[in-house]
């Protein structure tokens, strides 16, 4: 720590993201060697498209985990807003563009997020339990009150937005084409905004501070309750954006097919080096971890492994990934103690 300035390499190897990146690279190369298709333009575009929804969810999940909580309600929240928005607009026979659906979804998402934030921030209840309860409530509203059934038609504006492409990538060998969706821009915009928020605003530093020590954050002058409530509102909005994008891209509103995604998303965030205990982690790592999960889920076919093996791989990935970082901490603590002891003996 007090030695000379560490070299770039040393700095890199100390960071968790570096290892996730290495694993990712090895995996990609492996797939490329097996199939020769991985780095083809259309596959890369496919992966980018597959990343949009999980990526957005991961950003929201990341914020919550950094603040010291766990959110399991985002798939239910996204499903509810997505469904409510689509249904409402269909009933109104809405023919306009995609802006209104997005605005409505964001508004509903903000309200639902505030619901989480109120209980977690104001009553100081454990986030995991509250979101467990709220996801149940959201599902109940969607399936009970809205009597949700799969909507195979969505407003034309949403459909146009969800299917329009920035460009189309073509695989020179197979001739297969893939669309780079416009919605990818929405993902990038959210990513950039959250990055800015976390890095350059006091609100963002407050999220880290709360995750590090809530008591200290309070004493330092952060408004802990307000920060948490605003953060959950934000997370609700990000999740509902993901929901509306998903519906637009699939050109249908399926009430339940996002449910159950929470575990994989959280797994990706944690694989990227975000501490489940809060306070530590970077958005870069979070994205790398999510990308790892997305690639594993989407590239099994290229590797010639039946898709039914998907969960086996994610399971192993979670166990090995978290196991390695847990083991690293043990080793680091041990060697640190020995080092300081040595220093003292030498002194």
């Amino acid at each position: 720590m007090k030695g000379g300035t560490p070299t770039l390499m040393k700095k890199l190897t100390r960071r968790n993201e570096f290892y996730v990146f290495l694993v990712l690279l090895v995996l990609c190369l492996l797939i490329e060697i097996r199939s020769g298709q991985f780095f083809s333009p259309n596959n890369l575009v496919d992966i980018a498209s597959a990343m949009i929804v999980p990526g957005l969810f991961a950003i929201g999940s990341f914020l919550v985990i950094v603040s010291g909580g766990v959110d399991v309600s985002f798939p239910a929240l996204a499903s509810l807003t997505m469904y409510a928005t689509t249904k409402m607009l269909l009933d109104a026979n809405y023919q306009g563009g995609a802006v209104l659906p997005i605005v409505i979804a964001l508004a509903i998402g903000a309200v639902l997020g505030a619901f989480n934030g109120l209980f977690i921030g104001y009553f100081r209840l454990p986030a995991m339990i509250v979101t467990l309860g709220s996801s149940s409530v959201f599902k109940g509203i969607m399936q009970g009150a809205l009597n949700s059934k799969q909507l195979t038609v969505i407003p034309p504006g949403m459909r146009r937005w969800g299917t329009s492409a920035l460009f189309i990538a073509r695989n020179p060998v197979s001739g297969l084409t893939s669309r780079m969706y416009v919605t990818f821009i929405a993902f990038i915009v959210v990513l950039a905004l959250v990055f800015f928020l976390l890095r350059f605003t006091m609100f963002g530093r407050g999220i880290y501070a709360i995750g590090g020590s809530e008591v200290s954050a309070h004493r330092a002058g952060f408004n802990v309750i307000r920060t948490k409530v605003i953060m959950y509102v934000l997370v609700g909005m990000i999740a509902s954006l993901a929901g509306i994008i998903r519906a637009s891209m699939m050109q249908q509103a399926h009430p339940t097919n996002m449910l159950g995604m929470e575990m994989n998303i959280i797994a990706g965030v944690v694989l990227g080096g975000t501490a489940i205990t809060g306070g530590r982690g970077t958005l870069t790592g979070c994205m790398l971890g999510t990308l790892l999960i997305v690639i594993v889920e989407n590239s099994m076919i290229l590797l010639g492994i039946p898709t039914s093996w998907r969960s086996v791989f994610t399971g192993v990935l979670i166990i090995v990934g978290t196991g390695v970082s847990a083991y690293q901490t043990i080793v680091m603590n041990r060697s640190k103690r020995v080092q300081t002891a040595k220093k003292e003996v030498a002194a």
């Binding site: 766990v70 575990m263 994989n264 959280i266 797994a267 944690v270 489940i276 205990t277 969960s311 086996v312 994610t314 399971g315 192993v316 990935l317 979670i318 166990i319 978290t322 196991g323 847990a326 083991y327 901490t329 043990i330």
Partner: peptide, 15 residues
Amino acid sequence: FHIPPILATMGSGEL
């Protein structure tokens, strides 16, 4: 292996 239980069992459940 000192993996936090929530992650360990989430992973094994997936597995």
